[in-house]
Write a protein that binds this DNA or RNA. Structure first.
Lengths: 331, 331
DNA sequence: CTGTTAGCGCTTTCAT
DNA sequence: ATGAAAGCGCTAACAG
């Protein structure tokens, strides 16, 4: 069932059908009614692909993220989807797993599909977009990065000042009377944003007069197990650390579990902080002090930026969000 | 840049270009090379919309869910997306918020777009699809429901036996020596699946000889606050309940927090169980005993079902998954 | 106000 | 092996 069938049955031309389909004027109420009746009779839906071919757009946005299951990403994706849905776009979600090959595949698919815009969620893409193939596929598309900065011409970015975010956590620990040279950082990822965090940590510590702050950075894998496992190593420190600033909430909770397993009390013996202010931070006990990197605001700004880019009204091309610290029981 | 431009520059016809684009034979290596050179020169990507118009498909799947931020849904969406990506489909995600009007809008958009298949995630859609407009838009499309059953012809379903799931929790509490007539159920949602759960609860309890089991069902809102708030009411029970079986992990954790705030120990004084076996259940302390409703398996089966439906090879049309109980510290 | 016609960019017969 | 031409379903001038 297509527009020709409708036109035939309503005894009009396809243009007239097209007009009522698109709510254009210059159609008598009578004709309109006649056509509408046929439309209703067959519960007709115009073919968006054919429309898209003419319009050169199917009103779709693509979100590239590493893994939509990570709360921080799913929140971002959610907000972006909801906002674009309001503007009558549909949103394709891609889980790259952080893999170059997958990123390439998705980038190609996105280029094929003539999507109207793409949002890169997470600073992993800073590196991934260095790839010739990825950047070639994405070049020219309206593109914004959520917490990232890529080397693609015309890419806009919403940045989060993670350097300042980590600094907030460090300062808070000191302000709460934690021994300054007892504060350590636990890094669990190697993305651009992760690097900013531990640089922020080290910078803050050194400005507070602690030397060799970089030696106070520990590494582990992301997640509960990574956090718990890192505790072993961190506790070898003598004297015992006063506070553990973590790069992610989940890892921080792992740390708290590891400490609890050894009978070390949080926050009495050691303070702990996380990053993202995810829902996770409310589930553990004590609840987790966490840097709020304003995921929702970031997503909202991405939408605005991308929209303005799509409409050609380049109001601004880059924004930086200042994180805030949310203090809870763990510190 | 389109296929005509390529053909012109390569001094061949568009059909030949099309052939090399689609890796068809019947092209001399020489011609192929000549064309490939031009293709590479311009980094040409064929327009998938135009292709779609001919092929009558753009290889896209739509996922309708209430809210992708809910871990159980994001896990499902993730798995579905990954699997379909392997099969070179792209996936559109829709967050309906459980709203009828939004569901309608998405259903219409999906019908327009000629998507190849749709997955309805969650039993909310059991009711939502009762709507004439929604079912009219979706009718005819290859459609699979994850943990739901809708009244649309040809809809396939992956069901989770939530009746049995709740029963598992009840039996476990009894087996652990919890006073049988002290077990209560906390319901936080009103979806089809939620109803199966508290029916399962009541059924199990009555089979164990407890009368008026339905009176032992409490209601609250979904989430941490809902759970914590419900504690007030539940503790009015005299004697004090022996175990609280909850309909969702998050609510269960709220309950544990509420109990902790009152100095009631879990599991010593009261046992608690959740549902979904989400990552949440590992974050709280004690860790939460939870019914594992096999989200990943459900998603995988959805993909298989949908794929077979799309390919016309109707191996089976409905599967039911048996949940399992994962016992942790809270019971 | 309504109809005719020319594309949108591609795939696919059907000739050659 | 290659090309010409029709058509996928729709929109948008342009006529009338």
């Amino acid at each position: 069932m297509n527009i020709y069938d409708i036109a035939e049955e309503a005894k009009v031309s396809i243009s007239t059908v097209s007009r009522v389909l698109n709510n254009k004027d210059r159609v008598t109420d009578e004709t309109r009614g006649k056509i509408q009746a046929v439309l209703d009779k067959y519960n007709y839906t115009p073919n968006a692909i054919a429309r898209g071919l003419v319009a050169k757009t199917m009103k779709t946005i693509a979100i590239l993220s590493v893994d939509i299951r990570v709360p921080h990403y799913s929140r971002t994706a959610f907000t972006i989807e909801r906002e674009f849905s309001k503007r009558s776009y549909n949103v394709i979600v891609c889980n790259t797993g952080g893999e170059l090959e997958e990123t390439r595949r998705y980038a190609r698919a996105i280029a094929h599909r003539q999507v109207d815009g793409v949002v890169l969620v997470g600073s992993v893409f800073n590196d991934l977009c260095g790839d010739t193939e990825v950047s070639a596929a994405l070049r020219g598309l309206p593109l914004v990065t959520a917490n990232g900065q890529v080397d693609i011409p015309n890419a806009y970015s919403v940045l989060i000042d993670d350097y300042a975010g980590a600094e907030l956590a460090v300062k808070h620990m000191a302000a709460r009377g934690r021994q300054r040279d007892g504060i350590v950082y636990l890094k669990d990822l190697n993305t651009g944003s992760a690097k900013m965090k531990w640089n922020g940590f080290a910078g803050a510590l050194e400005r507070m007069g602690v030397d060799n702050a970089k030696d106070r950075v520990f590494s582990t894998s992301y997640g509960l197990e990574g956090g718990a496992a890192a505790v072993n190593e961190i506790l070898r420190l003598n004297p015992r650390p006063s506070a553990i600033v973590c790069g992610e909430d989940l890892t921080a909770i792992g740390v708290m579990k590891g400490l609890a397993a050894r009978g070390i009390r949080v926050p009495d013996d050691i303070a702990v902080s996380g990053y993202n202010n995810s829902e996770y931070s409310l589930l553990c006990s004590p609840e987790l002090t966490s840097v709020d990197n304003k995921g929702e605001m970031c997503a909202l700004l991405c939408v605005q930026l991308l929209e303005s880019r799509i409409n050609g009204s380049n109001a601004f091309s880059s924004v930086t969000i200042k994180p805030e610290l949310v203090v809870r029981g763990s510190s």
